[in-house]
Design a binder for these strands. Structure first.
Length: 646
RNA sequence: GCCGAUGUAGCUCAGUCGGUAGAGCAGCUGAUUCGUAAUCAGCAGGUCGUGGGUUCAACUCCCUCCGUCGGCUCCA
């Protein structure tokens, strides 16, 4: 007999070698069918596996994150089974659970189309009905190789050969379908109640574009139909908020085949939002001791060679010729800022110098990655380069982090942080990289924020902290980034006079807060579903007179608000109030101000707020107070920085 | 760039078996002067993404290219 302890301290006596099912019975859990696996001493395993060791156990419910992952992984096996039955020439590769679902990659040169999905789903249904248990088997490397070689599953053979010595090799079988797999899995196919295949896609074997392209099928599965429906509804909701759709409907921006892919045309409404956002950014940067700079779009290729961009970033750059010289169109804003710094002798007393530029950059992105405002070929960054002494580096990184957090907080976005280290294609000395990484790492630790490390994902000139925000639909977006750079100061021979009267090398931080204005606007559009907060709304109030005889008074109300800087529009069209309201609502205008006989007599308005009901009548003073409170540009809590003559 | 899908009026979408296009909304004109999500009537609007091919005849079938969408790789 062995003793197992549950999470809540309950002890269960079990015969050594008994299965998880027996353990399940002994715990007397309410809904045994809702338990899909077991965690034994921290390791997940199938319910069917025998238990030999005492220790701690945890029952994994189908609705828990781990349970859902198991459910989805098993669903991918069942789908692979169905695909092999319908398309016997398809070769299986890998099929993991992912966030919100799963996929399975097949080598199947004819490719699957979305029409095939219904057939595959139907076949899956039959397999599920068969109530086949998932059976685990461990086998020797030689047996495993033979098994999959005989089946002609060359990708599985490659995977087995890649497994480290000593790692147990296991297969899972349900019905007559066997797959190389670590597990664990559902007890049987019947546990799968709610699933849906979503779409097909191409994907490279092992994610490398030099490898053959496989056919991927994405799907998802949930514990019950309700959860699946809720998820599908969320996808629908996301579709409704798609900034490309709203961009058209709200007349915000457009992209044109005749202009070129990835080049955004701002319509006046989004132009206004952008202008307000940029004003906000300028204020916040000035407040924090940044100085505004501007550089040209074209710089001679010689300069890009010096910076390393020509050798390491050329495939993303555009070049052009002027007279005898080749010029590069800037993909980053740093070079001009380097030249500002170099324009004179610098003293340690001047540092840190923080150059801020709303700089428009052009990058040659692959055609397949372009998407609305999210991924474009020309975009404007709220970019800055901080040049400081090595001693100041840590503090500056922390300063940028708190800047980003304050701004994200103001918009109401939660954030996540990531640290990216040295990539394969990079420049600079090892020791500089180490110093830079440790500077960022220390700053992160000091901030107390949890973070994840992405090995080899840094920029070619230095490591970076990426800050990702989460929007209203819980989707993550890369916006802010803080990059540490020792090599550009080296390449441009930047220096400053130290206290000791010697020349020293400064370090540099590249950083953006919102990142790309285009991307950030796209995120805002989706986050707010097009209903911008009043301070950003292109039109803040619209005045809706009931009949022609109220036009004069409507004009007076408009003038009064206009004088206070409110963005007001008059709807003097010969239409019924209902029509005007409907239109103002669909244009997401925050304040709708109805004026008729009563209002004119009382010198008031009847206000309606977007998405809500009638607020009732209010005097013009009340109205002004209310609108101005919402229309004022918000500010982060940081106090302005003093400036001294160095 | 690669895999798959897709492209008809400003927008959303019909268009059968191949016989050169239709609706709603938006627009314009007129009537209506109206109290919290669409007043009525009339008019106008399209080189069916591009170029080529098959055919007596192509929005429809085939090929090319371009754009877009979903992914892969990449990324702010």
């Amino acid at each position: 007999m062995i003793e197992l302890k549950g999470k809540n301290g309950e002890a269960v006596q079990l015969e050594s070698g008994a299965s998880g099912f027996e353990l399940l019975k002994k715990t007397g859990v309410q809904d045994p069918k809702g338990i899909v696996a077991l965690k034994l001493n921290g390791k997940l395993q199938d319910l069917s596996r025998p238990i030999h060791e005492p220790g701690e156990f945890e029952l994994i419910g189908i609705k828990s994150p781990e349970g859902e992952a198991i459910l989805r992984h098993s669903t991918s096996h069942i789908m692979a089974d169905a695909v092999k039955k319908l398309f016997p020439s398809a070769k299986v590769t890998i099929g993991p659970a992912i966030e919100n679902g799963f996929y399975y990659d097949f080598e199947y040169p004819p490719g699957f189309s979305d029409q095939d999905l219904a057939g595959i789903e139907a076949r899956m249904k039959e397999i599920i009905k068969g109530d086949h248990p998932f059976k685990r088997q461990e086998l020797s490397r030689a047996d495993a190789l033979k098994l999959f070689q005989d089946k002609g599953e060359s990708y599985k053979v490659e995977l087995i050969n890649g497994l480290p010595e000593g790692e147990p090799i296991s297969t899972y079988q349900h019905g007559d379908f066997i797959d190389l797999c670590r597990g664990p899995h559902l007890p049987s196919t019947r546990y799968l109640k709610a699933y849906k295949l979503l779409h097909t896609a191409g994907a490279y074997w092992r994610g490398d574009e030099r490898n053959p392209q496989l056919q991927r099928i994405y799907g998802t599965a949930f514990a019950d139909q309700g959860d699946l429906d809720a998820y599908l509804k969320r996808l629908e909701e996301a579709k409704k908020r798609d900034h490309r759709k709203l961009g058209r409907e709200l007349d915000l921006f457009s992209l044109h085949e005749e202009v070129g892919p990835g080049f955004v045309i701002y319509h006046p409404k989004l132009g206004l939002v952008r202008a307000v956002l940029e004003e906000f950014l300028k204020k916040e940067h000035l407040k924090r001791g940044y100085q505004i700079a501007y550089g040209p779009t074209l710089l001679k290729s010689e300069l890009w060679k010096r910076s390393g961009h020509y050798d390491h970033y050329r495939q993303n750059m555009y070049f052009t010729q002027i007279d005898e010289d080749q010029y590069g169109i800037k993909p980053m804003n740093c070079l001009s800022h380097m030249l500002i710094y170099k324009n004179g002798l610098r003293s340690y007393r001047e540092l840190p110098l923080r150059y801020f530029e709303l700089g428009t950059v052009h990058r040659h992105e692959k055609s397949g990655v372009l998407a609305g405002l999210f991924r474009v070929r020309a975009f404007t960054q709220d970019d800055a380069h901080i040049i400081c002494t090595p001693d100041q580096l840590q503090g500056e990184v922390l300063g940028v982090m708190s800047f980003v957090l304050e701004v994200m907080d103001l918009f109401g976005f939660p954030v996540e942080m990531e640290l990216s280290t040295r990539p394969a294609d990079s420049i600079g000395a090892d020791q500089d990289w180490e110093r830079a990484i440790s500077a960022l790492d220390t700053a992160l630790k000091q901030s107390g924020f949890p973070y994840q490390v992405n090995e080899g994902e840094g920029a070619f000139y230095g490591p970076k902290i990426d800050i990702k925000l989460k929007d209203a639909l819980d989707r993550k977006w890369q916006c802010a980034t803080i990059q540490c750079d020792f090599t550009l100061p080296e390449r441009f021979d930047l220096s400053y006079m130290g206290k000791d009267g010697e020349k020293h090398r400064p370090v540099m931080i590249h950083r953006v807060v919102l990142g790309s204005i285009e991307r950030f606007l796209g995120i805002l559009i989706e986050h707010f579903a097009g209903a911008f907060p009043t301070w950003l709304a292109p039109v803040q109030a619209r005045i809706l007179p009931i009949a022609d005889r109220h036009h004069n008074y409507a004009g007076q109300v408009a003038d009064r608000l206009l004088e206070k800087g409110v963005r007001v529009e008059l709807d003097l069209r010969n239409e019924k109030l209902n029509y005007k309201i409907r239109q103002a609502e669909s244009e997401k205008i925050p304040f709708m101000l109805v004026v008729g006989d009563q209002e004119e007599q009382e010198q008031s308005v009847s206000a309606r707020i977007r998405g809500r009901e009638d607020l009732g009548k209010m005097t013009l003073e009340q109205l002004e107070g209310r609108i101005l409170a919402e229309a004022r540009m918000p500010e982060t809590k940081s106090k302005p920085t003093r400036r001294e003559v160095p």
